[in-house]
Amino acid sequence: MQTNTTVTQLTLQLPQWAIDKVQELPPVMPDVEQRMETVLFFAGANFKNDTGGPFAAAVFEEASGRLVSIGVNRVVPSNCSTAHAEIMALSLAQAQLQTYDLGGPGMPSHQLVVNWCPCAMCFGAVLWSGIRSLVIAGAGSQLEAITGFDEGPIHPQWRQELEKRGITLLEDVLHEQAVAQFEEFAASGRPVYNARLG
């Protein structure tokens, strides 16, 4: 009798260096620049350690700055095209808080901090996650021009779509540092993992 060998479980996790580093972070980061500095550190360390692409994201309680979760890109090591930094950070936050809705009743407002505007897939995850604030280092085609990553067809009125759903947006936080980091990644010659190399 032939047995079914279909995979029935999926596990995504941070690399060990990131797990160790999270333990060293302050539990509260009241300043948005400090939050972005942390995200940029994780993004840079991720590609330098060859544990994923140059992307990181973190979820904080917006008002207090309490760190809830950090995610880094894990696409190549996990063989999972959806293992983007935002998906990791949001999913880990939801697991930590035991809720699919980070903006549910009685909860503090949560903020997602990312080292660039979310791609087409992650933008959808942002809308559905329940977060109330999005902080990004930049937006537009500059990332694609520097690195060659394909960010997908994000909605042309994406800012308005955030606003319609009660999600505030803060742009260009530590923009120059983020761009310099993408340039460093491009110069490193590390692979760009577009499905069709587009």
Rank of each mutant, 00 (worst) to 15 (best):
P156A: 00
L162P: 09
G166F: 11
L170A: 06
K164V: 07
A139G: 04
F182L: 11
Q181I: 03
R159C: 02
K164A: 14
A139C: 08
L169F: 05
T147C: 10
R159P: 00
A186I: 03
T168M: 07
E176I: 09
A178T: 02
F182S: 05
F149V: 15
A187G: 09
Q177C: 08
L162S: 11
G148M: 03
P156V: 00
S188C: 07
Q142E: 14
D172H: 12
L170D: 05
R165I: 11
P153E: 10
A187Q: 15
H155L: 06
A180F: 03
Q142L: 10
L143D: 03
I154M: 09
G189M: 05
H155E: 13
P156Q: 00
V179G: 01
E144L: 09
Q157M: 10
L143H: 13
F149K: 05
E184K: 05
G189H: 07
A187R: 13
E144G: 11
Q142T: 04
Q160R: 11
F182Q: 07
Q160T: 13
R165G: 10
D150G: 05
A178W: 01
G166Y: 12
A139M: 04
S141V: 12
G148R: 06
I167V: 15
F185N: 04
L170K: 14
H155G: 00
R165H: 15
Q177D: 14
T168S: 15
V173M: 02
G152T: 06
E163I: 05
G140R: 12
E151G: 03
G140Q: 13
V179Q: 06
A145D: 14
F149R: 08
H175S: 02
A186V: 04
E184F: 01
L174E: 02
G140C: 12
K164M: 12
A180P: 00
P153S: 11
Q177R: 15
E161A: 12
V173L: 01
Q157R: 14
S141T: 12
V179D: 00
L170W: 04
R165T: 10
I154D: 00
L174S: 01
L143E: 05
W158Q: 06
E183Y: 04
E183H: 03
P156T: 00
A180I: 02
G152W: 06
F149C: 09
T147D: 09
P156N: 00
H155M: 05
G140Y: 12
K164R: 15
A145E: 15
Q177V: 07
I167E: 12
Q160F: 04
I154N: 04
V179S: 01
W158E: 07
R165V: 11
F185S: 01
E144Y: 08
T168K: 13
E161D: 09
F185Y: 15
F185G: 02
E171D: 09
E184M: 07
